[in-house]
Nucleic acid binder design. Structure first.
Lengths: 195, 195, 195, 195
DNA sequence: AATGAATGAGTTTTCATTCAT
DNA sequence: GATGAATGAAAACTCATTCAT
């Protein structure tokens, strides 16, 4: 029973289905049929709306990136101090909507896909640059530029590493302890001068 | 012109070719033909030796794991102090043979594949446990068990995170600075009590 | 905003769009969507009016055939002498509305389609017979029946051949010189007895 | 039961099957499966050897063009006089191997395909230019350059037109009478000065 | 030991066609 | 009268895998 204005609804459903499919079949094994039937539509429709598998996957990635960006921006807007901004960035990266198994799987898959896909790589670089610049901004208010850069690099690596590692663990990932670990590392690195 | 004793040579060539193929086509896109022709043999032969694509890929993963393990063990054998052992583990993870683009790509790909492949996951878990136990062992000589566990987790995440991040950068990865960053973080975390 | 009496307008627009689509995508590649969107309507509407792709294409062919027939009949009506009637037929075949790239493409496509489509073949045969009979009629007044038949066959082949050849040339086809070439050949063949 | 050196055999069989398939299904309707199963192989093999449908079709066209070229060259080599060379070209165009229903269908299909496919068009232009140059060469020895050009154009159109027309007739095409018709037209056009 | 030949199952992709609105 | 939504069947294409030689 076709209705009007279905397109955005289908697009969202397909993107959500793509994330779930990647999670439980793996990027290399997902088929359009998996995704489409999980979204409750035909494979043809997925093609119709996205133009092809690659583009659907890229759209999914863009969606994830945008969501993460929003998460961080929202928290950043409410932060008052440099330390608050650092916390905002870190917590944003481990926000509930993001740090669940299916989303983590998808993220990793995209990280890996970016090794060989120019557009995916471009997308990821934009995100990485923004993350680092957010961190740097806050850190520079608390320490020397040089120091800030070093800490930012460490923090970013730590965030990504925790994502990866949690994805392999049996238990559901715990956003809070992950965020605390990162914050702890950052503030400790700042600590010497801070103290 | 078939020769005797070619098997080990072919196996090595195929594994090396698999790593390269994964690097420049991506796990999802590698075909047996890619790998075989890169190794200078027919796809049929790759089958003959490994029994199938999955098994060749698994063998490749085992090879990577074994090499990394050897790298670390060798360094560990020559280390005298707890700090030396920590350095051995960290440096081993960024050893020259490991920390080059093709190998990083392959590692990441396997990390992701492990999300959905039981055997790959098992293999990876064995390695992760050993890495952690090596680190823990050394750390426990320098701090409380609880503290050691926390630092080990952080260090492991940092190592993985650096791998992933370096893989996206345009430049060839620099093992030394990566290792230093990790060592610095570890010793700083130990620092308070160490001092 | 649906209007009354749109049907004939839509039909014409769709047929024109079909001709253009065939011209620049090729019979094998035309889709209902091409045609419909070029006509500014939805594919569904094209179906509604014509019942299906095949029937739209057949209607397009009928349209072309009818136009060509009209073109010739009009000229024939104004012709006084046998030679005038021959000229009428020839010129009709190269009339402006007919001898333009898009129409030529469509004609050829139909000619070829007729090899495998019964209805298209029937349509084409009717036209071919009429064309020949028109020519024959005029020729018989100028030469023997046997001779007339031979010349008619030659003329018809020449007309078709020129269509096909002009369609491959880079320049826009020139109706006048084509018509002259055919007339020249006919009158020369008649010449011996004519002289 | 795979044997060595099958590739050229398969290629030939597939090309022959393509011609037959085009003939009895029509260019727009042929599928790789039609062709492959007619050639007694799987569709996968056809892809393997030709890379895709388009390329198989193009290869088929190239084959037809080459055969026709050979046919003409052979006859041309044996011709002594200008008139003999003209006859060689004309007869070559209606040679037995060429002028049978399936081949005619394929030719026409390609002629039409050339309207929209750059490579097909290029191929056809090469052939058309060669045909015309062969004719011109011979004709120039018998009449003025200007006259020769005109007659060559007429002859070429006549040849193509006869192909098209014969393809629509119910009976098997008769190469001899077709060739005679063309020769007659040429020699008649030459006749005035010739006489 | 090694290969080229061949297949068939699985996937993406395309489209005519249908239909509720 | 007209559309956008949706499908399903059919087609192209890919590839791991098998096997005779």
């Amino acid at each position: 029973m076709p209705k009007l204005g279905m397109e955005p609804i289908r697009r969202k459903a397909l993107i959500a289905a793509a994330i779930d499919s990647i999670h439980d079949r793996g990027m290399a094994q997902v088929t359009m049929n998996d995704i489409a039937s999980r979204a409750g539509v035909s494979a043809g429709l997925a093609h119709h709306y996205f133009g092809g598998k690659d583009q659907l996957l890229l759209a999914t990635m863009r969606h994830l990136l945008a969501e993460l960006g929003d998460e961080i921006q929202t928290r950043l807007a409410g932060a008052k101090s440099p330390r608050g901004r650092i916390r905002a960035v870190v917590r944003g990266n481990f926000a509930a909507g993001q740090f669940c198994p299916a989303v983590i799987s998808a993220w990793l898959a995209f990280y890996v896909a970016a090794q060989n896909d120019t557009e995916a790589r471009r997308l990821l670089r934009v995100y990485a640059r923004r993350l680092e610049s957010n961190l740097l901004h806050a850190l520079r208010e608390l320490t020397s530029d040089e120091n800030a850069a070093e800490i930012a690099e460490m923090a970013a690596a730590l965030i990504d590493g925790l994502w990866i590692r949690r994805s392999l663990s049996r238990h559901d990932p715990d956003p809070d302890s992950a965020a605390e670990l990162v914050e702890h590392a950052i503030f400790q690195a700042l600590g010497r001068r801070d103290a």
